[in-house]
């Protein structure tokens, strides 16, 4: 089981089962939304995700048609995202995890968009856009 929360700790979640493999997404949208060099997201079935939001603080933003990013409206923490065409799957923003997560990244995706000041110095495969499914399955994303 995994647990997570936002920065102000008003919103909590728990996850049954294991999180999927993850990649670092360097696309402009993830860089804007996170304010960081890349996003770090892992997919799970919504049925395995239990959200505790007693003060109704979670807000959703449609960052592109049919893609929603959920964050805490009190502290701004990004929590998860999902597509309307696959509402039964969500993608957790790994920085919100409180529990230990011992997987390592499988791919760098959308490096064609990456920040010029970020130097990728590891040996993890890099892909200009989506990673092929034999390398990384990005559950709940627009991956073809």
């Amino acid at each position: 089981m995994h647990k997570g929360s936002c920065l102000c700790a008003k919103v909590h979640y728990s996850i049954e089962g294991e999180l999927s493999d993850f990649g670092y997404c360097h696309c402009n949208s993830c860089r804007k939304a996170s304010g960081s060099a890349h996003g770090a997201n892992s997919g799970i079935a919504r049925a395995n995700f239990k959200l505790s939001d007693e003060e109704d603080l979670v807000r959703e933003f449609e960052s592109s048609p049919g893609k929603f990013r959920a964050f805490c409206s009190r502290c701004g923490s990004p929590l998860y995202a999902y597509l309307t065409k696959s509402r039964d799957l969500i993608r957790i923003r790994l920085g919100s995890l409180d529990s230990h997560f011992n997987k390592t990244t499988k791919a760098h995706t959308f490096v064609s968009d990456k920040a010029c000041w970020e130097s990728i110095a590891d040996s993890v495969p890099q892909f200009a856009e989506w990673a092929p499914r034999e390398v990384l399955i990005q559950t709940g994303s627009k991956q073809p």
């Binding site: 304010g35 997201n41 920085g95």
Partner: peptide, 20 residues
């Protein structure tokens, strides 16, 4: 100039391993 920050608050605030 910029820095990378790995503190737990930046991790929560940005949803990633670090903030820049």
């Amino acid at each position: 100039n910029a820095i990378h920050c790995y503190c737990g608050m930046c991790r929560k605030a940005h949803g990633t391993a670090f903030s820049t």
